[in-house]
């Protein structure tokens, strides 16, 4: 039995002659919140559509709960809920009717619609036509539609699009609750790392159809080596001195020099060195690149 809720093996996908996904090897462990990160146009939505069998994948490349998708479409879809791109909502129906329609299709009792509306905070707007909903309300309804079948695996494509900060926090908490309390697996795509950083247990970074990084959030942070940031007078001479003493300069601006952080003792020695040579050190601090910059670095390289 596979431990992965989602596993793709050397997945390639093309639209005409254009290669959209190249040798993609996603491994989403069961019970994880997998942050699927990449800039716009990286292939995130295409991947999600393949995972739902909306786009046909070559055989034996996509496995959901260990089953090949093309041969087990219905069995797999019974266990999956999804929100793809803009929420797919019938504008002429009310929020509740949209959910009732989904309950009809899934053979679920209609009362589940009310439960879902309460869960995403749309009870008051239940009987309003959904075309009159704000983008944030539509997004919530889309999430409710994805959750109505109580799926084991949730695929959420940029679910916080259009939500206000409160809404974003609610969705974040909901995702954490779903995985910790109900042992669900969530794949959530985003182009903003900061959004994923707080919830994801695992991260996959995709750019131009290639998976550049895959691992736990801790592994991603390990990639992120700390720097010693020095604010000092006469930057040019100070940096020459530092280099002469055998340190490597990572970056230099008009006001700061950054060198790889080695240890606190080493930082003290550099400070003494600079002061003894007549420089005034105004600040000396250990900096870690935020994940946003790290993400930019990783995606820039390919």
């Amino acid at each position: 039995m596979s431990n992965f809720a989602i596993e793709t093996v050397g997945l390639n996908f093309t639209f005409g002659r254009q290669a959209i996904l190249k040798n993609l090897a996603l491994q989403v462990p069961k019970g994880s919140i997998y942050g699927f990160l990449g800039p716009n146009g990286a292939g995130k939505t295409t991947t999600i559509k393949i995972l739902l069998n909306l786009l046909k994948s070559p055989s034996d490349q996509v496995f959901i709960f260990g089953k090949e998708i093309n041969n087990n479409r219905i069995a797999i879809l019974k266990r999956v809920g999804a929100l793809v791109e803009q929420p797919a909502i019938y504008g002429h129906l009310t929020g509740k009717e949209n959910l009732v329609n989904r309950c009809l299709l899934l053979g679920i009792k209609r009362s589940k619609a009310d439960e879902m509306l309460a869960l995403v905070g749309l009870t008051e707007a239940a009987n309003k036509k959904s075309k009159q909903y704000s983008l944030g309300m539509k997004q919530r309804l889309g999430i409710a539609l994805a959750l109505v079948s109580d799926p084991e695996l949730l695929l959420l494509d940029e679910p916080t699009n259009g939500l206000d900060p409160n809404g974003i926090i609610e969705i974040r908490n909901l995702m954490i609750e779903l995985t910790t309390k109900y042992n669900k697996t969530i794949l959530v795509s985003s182009h903003l790392l900061a959004e994923i950083e707080r919830t994801a247990t695992h991260v996959g970074i995709i750019n131009k159809g290639e998976l550049l990084f895959q691992g736990t959030i801790q592994e991603l942070q390990l990639l992120n080596k700390p720097l010693l940031e020095i604010e000092v007078t006469d930057i040019d001479r100070a940096s020459m001195l530092i280099e002469e003493k055998g340190y490597e300069i990572a970056t230099k601006t008009d006001a700061k020099i950054c060198i790889p952080f080695i240890s606190q003792t080493e930082s003290g020695m550099i400070n003494t060195l600079l002061v003894q040579n007549g420089f005034t050190v105004t600040s000396l601090s250990q900096q870690r690149k935020d994940l946003e910059n790290l993400f930019l670095d990783i995606t820039k390289t390919n």
């Binding site: 219905i74 069995a75 879809l77 999956v80 791109e85 797919a88 989904r102 299709l105």
Partner: peptide, 18 residues
């Protein structure tokens, strides 16, 4: 058109129905 207009083909075909 009810599906084209609301962009709901994708959610319709993502349901566990043949």
């Amino acid at each position: 058109n009810i599906e084209h207009k609301n962009d709901t083909w994708k959610s319709l075909f993502a349901q566990p129905l043949n």
